[in-house]
Nucleic acid binder design. Structure first.
Length: 473
DNA sequence: TGAAATGTTGGGGCG
DNA sequence: ACGCCCCAACATTTC
């Protein structure tokens, strides 16, 4: 009697360890791992440039890992349902398994795919693989979704702890392998090579993700409460892209924190709460799928956003004349990343100083971040703009000078990314327009030529933002 | 997971 | 010694 054959549909779960779908498949019979490139099934959010670059590297390492287990990663592109149907027929597979994703367009697609496959007599099993808590299961006393983080997270923490880790026992290949495209056929990498900054900053893939997790849990975690805000030394974990692509499961992160020497400290709790925000974002998107493009708070539909093409471009390229903003935006452009503190500062600047819609900011982040995640991106931008769940009050306008002096006190971050003003001393480095002529001269800075004058005046922009927000109160 | 304006307090200089 | 003013430091409120 020939063994059963099971297709594992890999998506944002590009790992071997603690992978419920892969584990289930290996228990069922022979395993055929598949990745299908289908960007036009992602609704209004096809993967951006940085995401595609990362995905290429991550698929490469996953493929190598599977090879070491005696398997292959079958790569395909096209309509997911068509590919899966073709493969099940070709391989005589009777079961298709995957770990669930929660983006609105993907939920719809997956439901359709599952329905069709089941209608053909195939077994479909799906799993919770990228979240600690399944969306829809964390509700308040009246059975509604939480819109305030602390209440949400408190409820999560009362649930049984995620303690299990799934490991593979044995895994067997099918009798024969179906055809696969080569990774280059997917054309994920940029035609013009702009990714050198990303190559220097990142090592995608499960093995490196595990290393970074280990390093973080033994190192920066202990000082996370303070360190996460220090953009100059970067005390953040930098695990977000690994989590987004599922190279790590949140359960693995959870356990690494709980078994580290920092376990139980305030820093450990603060870090776990960040994992909690990730959960919160996914749950919110699940309950309020329209928030990817519309504000959660209805009143913000009336907000007088301004169309400022030129200003948007200067923000995107790090040419606003505010050093901390420009440093962060150039960091993003070069490395596909920005520390969370910097994200809040630049997001506040775009929406409040420039009065440009958060959707424009979200779109830019979507294209440039290696950790671009629809749920987190949506929550983050709506939070900053003041129109989302548990949002920052509308009158909270970050002062880019104060923020820089607090979180980049020596100016190291600014000097790294805005070298043309590096010779200025602090605190003038944070506000070059206040520097006396002779200091600018000796630092080789010519405002308006070698570095832009500020795009707006802070005090004026602040009161304009407050006035605009008053209109919709 | 702010910033700025306004209010209060208390030490020290000074007439 | 005393009151007055200045002002830094801190607290509160307002946006």
């Amino acid at each position: 009697m020939s063994q059963r054959t099971c297709i594992v549909w890999f998506r944002n779960d590009l790992r071997i360890e603690d992978n419920p779908a892969l584990r289930a498949a290996s228990d069922r019979g022979a395993v055929i791992p598949v990745y299908i490139w289908a960007p036009d099934e992602e609704g209004d959010w096809p993967p951006g440039g940085a995401t595609r670059w990362w995905l290429h590297q991550s698929l490469h390492t996953l493929s190598k890992q599977l090879h070491a287990l005696g398997l292959r990663l079958i790569l395909r592109k096209g309509r997911s349902l068509d590919v899966l149907q073709e493969l099940t027929t070709q391989c005589g597979a009777d079961t298709i398994v995957w770990n669930r994703r929660y983006e609105p367009a993907i939920i719809k697609r997956d439901a359709h795919v599952a329905k069709q496959l089941v209608a053909e007599g195939l077994n479909v099993e799906t799993f919770t693989g990228s979240l600690l808590f399944e969306p829809g299961t964390i509700l308040n006393k009246s059975g509604k979704p939480f819109q305030v983080f602390t209440a949400f997270w408190k409820t999560c923490l009362q649930r049984p702890e995620p303690v299990q880790t799934l490991t593979l026992k044995r895994i067997s290949p099918p009798a024969s392998w179906p055809k696969s495209l080569s990774l280059d056929d997917l054309q994920l990498e940029p035609a013009i090579d702009w990714a050198s900054g990303m190559r220097d900053a990142w090592k995608p893939g499960e093995v490196e993700a595990q290393k970074r997790l280990c390093q973080f849990a033994q190192g920066a975690l202990a000082n996370y409460e303070v360190g996460r805000n220090q953009v100059d030394i970067d005390g953040s974990s930098r695990l977000s892209p690994h989590l987004h692509f599922g190279e790590l499961s949140p359960g693995q992160v959870w356990r690494a924190v709980m078994t580290s020497k920092a376990a139980g400290s305030t820093s450990a709790d603060v870090y776990l709460a960040e994992i909690g925000w990730r959960e919160f974002a996914h749950h919110l998107l699940f309950h309020f799928p329209h928030t990817t493009h519309a504000p959660l708070r209805e009143s913000f539909k009336r907000f007088p956003w301004e169309k400022r093409r030129a200003a948007l471009k200067r923000w995107q390229r790090g040419q606003t004349g505010y050093p901390i903003i420009d440093a962060a935006m150039r960091d993003l452009w070069a490395t596909g990343f920005m520390p969370n503190r910097a994200r809040m500062i630049v997001a506040s600047f775009l929406t409040k100083h420039l009065l440009i819609t958060w959707q424009e900011g979200a779109a830019w982040f979507w294209d440039t971040l290696v950790d671009a995640d629809l749920a987190s991106n949506t929550l983050g931008w709506q939070w900053t703009a003041g129109c989302g769940a548990d949002a920052a009050p509308y009158f909270r306008v970050f002062n880019p000078i104060t923020q820089a002096s607090k979180f980049d006190p020596n100016g190291a971050y600014i000097r790294k990314w805005v070298p043309e003003i590096a010779a200025l001393p602090v605190p003038l480095l944070f506000k070059p327009w206040e520097a006396p002529g002779e200091i600018l001269m000796s630092a080789g800075v010519h405002l308006g030529k070698t570095y832009p004058k500020p795009i707006v005046d802070h005090a004026e922009a602040r009161s304009a933002a407050l006035a605009a927000y008053n209109l919709i109160r």
